[in-house]
Design a protein around this nucleic acid. Structure first.
Lengths: 335, 335
DNA sequence: TTGTCTCACGGAAACGATTCTGCTGGTGTT
DNA sequence: AACACCAGCAGAATCGTTTCCGTGAGACAA
């Protein structure tokens, strides 16, 4: 079996309290005793039990990350950023997919973690309520919630959407459609609303059918675009709520023997690496997804230390990256 | 604070032992006492502490998943499959990126988990040795290791590679290049070796430069393809060690004003959804990545129950999916 | 009635850490 | 020489469970 603190104490001829002190450096210990303890630790290959420590300290050094499901490059990047940041602070990361689980099932996690990060979504409301009631420190991937005392990390969807649309408008497009994401995504909802607002503000119409919905993946981008292409008046630009759908849309446009950007301009949202290598390269609203994961962890760790501090919301800036697919890249300008 | 088992016992007027019995159903309890206990549990919103339980039972109901890094759709799918399967069995999943960490740092995880899944790689050797020495139940994403008593889950790289190459050969291609993955991936190494073997077996040459290496992502697929296109004799087919690089290669081919599959046939490996929607659709060796994650968890849970059983290796079958990019799709045949 | 057996349940000892409290012996002051 | 003081360490309580062992009460046979 694994060596325990008792084994170490016995070998070093000290009490377990002293072993603990040496390992945590929380109190004065003679150099000589320290050396004896360290020797025993090495010899026995001792590693403190995180579980026992967790019980004694009422803290697990574990964070939980909840997201609808993990089968996307978006989720992968959030996890990657969050895990790096957590590990750097000595925390481990539990990854949990929300989809297909009852909230009561999800509530078995808080007992294992010191805090959790949860993607905001109307679907999660019951779960969030339970978390709030349990007093689990929680950071939302989405807007902060004063009522639940939960902090938030959220990309600037509105600003990003406005940048994309105004860029299209400035370059002469006016029949601009939108392929939105699912209603379960607060980001998608916000981008959709910003699309409506911005179009209205510029006096541009949103004809029937110009607002299509997808599921943030390639194939629903394609099918949504196909619906747009079946409209009586085909749009001259499409703003997509994420890059995967934008790539799917480009595929549908090519399949219809139309050209991007000449016939239809396309702009995505995310800034995925793959978009850069499309033909033409995808213009996109970049959001640093890994940084969002990192920032969520930072905020959560801060919250764990400052339980009573007022709710915080971190807004992550987005940035329009102009490439070929919107018909206004540097190369195009030079033609 | 959270209610403990003592609070429940007090309210139900029973001992904590009885509360434990009721909750775990391990012994006979009167219906009447059971009801009293359950009432108290509800009223106090009691949830047993997984940490205390873990200490008492010497089991955490947590599994660890280690992978080089999580910034790929491949990693996302492994995590997704593993998490689903683990959750179904009542386990939670810790996700840990190996890259950038010392093995001693990684060894802080085993104490938190009942077992771990690790992607096999020469880079991880020291870590694997430490895991074996610690006696942590371990399943490799790769070949089983008799010497370390670790089970393995591995796709049939050889069979998949042979299927892809023989398909190309059967359709008249003979100047077949290979874009391999990094040496840190045992899957990549196996595919590369199988490529050499199969080419040799068919008496086909592998000229200088026909073997290029990438890093399993889009951009290195593009650059590797560019190197192939700069060769004195351009290949008439490229077999890529994964789909992302294959898509990158197609991009490079298009940029050189050559046509897929007419000038150069392309086959990938993975079966990613996105490949289906390329132009032309990507022919690929499909491997069920999520199932690999699932199977690894199943194997690990079995191993935890059967510590002394002989080492097992699960081989996951791959399947060639013929689409447009190899020049032999059904549509093409019908021309 | 007495003894035996079984069924429900209570008591208490783990599990492996942290940490509060208090003891001991050496140093410094007067 | 007497005392206070402090540094360094040991003892023991504690965290919240599970589970072994034991006990009292009731059922049943003798």
């Amino acid at each position: 079996m694994r060596a325990t603190i008792y084994d170490v104490a016995e070998r070093a001829k000290v009490s377990i309290a002293t072993v603990s002190r040496v390992l945590n450096g929380r109190a004065k210990v003679t150099d000589e005793t320290r050396a004896r303890v360290m020797e025993a630790v090495e010899a026995l290959n001792y590693r403190p039990s995180p579980v026992a420590r967790g019980l004694a300290m009422r803290a697990t050094s574990v964070l939980g990350l909840f997201h609808q499901n993990f089968q996307s490059i978006y989720a992968a990047q959030v996890i990657s950023g969050a895990e790096s940041e957590a590990a750097a602070a000595g925390y481990a990361l539990l990854a949990i997919q929300i989809e297909g689980k009852e909230w009561s099932e999800l509530m078995r996690i808080p007992g294992r973690a010191d805090g959790v990060i949860v993607t905001a979504s109307p679907d999660n409301e019951a779960f969030l309520q339970a978390l709030a009631q349990a007093g689990t420190p929680t950071v939302l991937l989405g807007h902060a919630r004063q009522d639940l005392k939960m902090d938030g990390v959220v990309p600037d969807n509105r600003q990003g959407t406005i940048a994309a649309l105004e860029h299209l408008i400035a370059h002469g497009r006016s029949k601009i459609a939108h392929i939105a994401g699912p209603e379960s995504s607060t980001n998608a909802v916000e981008r959709e609303q910003s699309y409506r607002d911005t179009m209205a503000q510029h006096g541009l119409p949103v004809p029937d059918g110009y607002l299509q919905h997808g599921e943030f993946n390639f194939v629903t981008g394609t099918t949504a675009m196909e619906r747009l292409l079946a409209l009586p008046e085909i749009p001259d630009a499409v703003f997509c709520a994420n890059d995967m759908m934008a790539m799917g849309a480009m595929q549908a446009i090519a399949a219809a023997d139309l050209r991007v950007p000449d016939d239809i301009a396309v702009i995505g949202f995310d800034g995925l690496e793959a978009g850069e290598y499309m033909t033409p390269p995808l213009t996109t609203v970049f959001q640093p997804i890994e940084d969002i994961g990192r920032e969520a962890v930072r905020l959560l760790l801060w919250r764990i230390e400052n339980r009573e501090a007022p709710v915080r919301e971190e807004i992550i800036r987005t940035q329009l990256i102009v490439r070929g697919s919107c018909g206004a890249s540097a190369e195009h300008e030079n033609l």
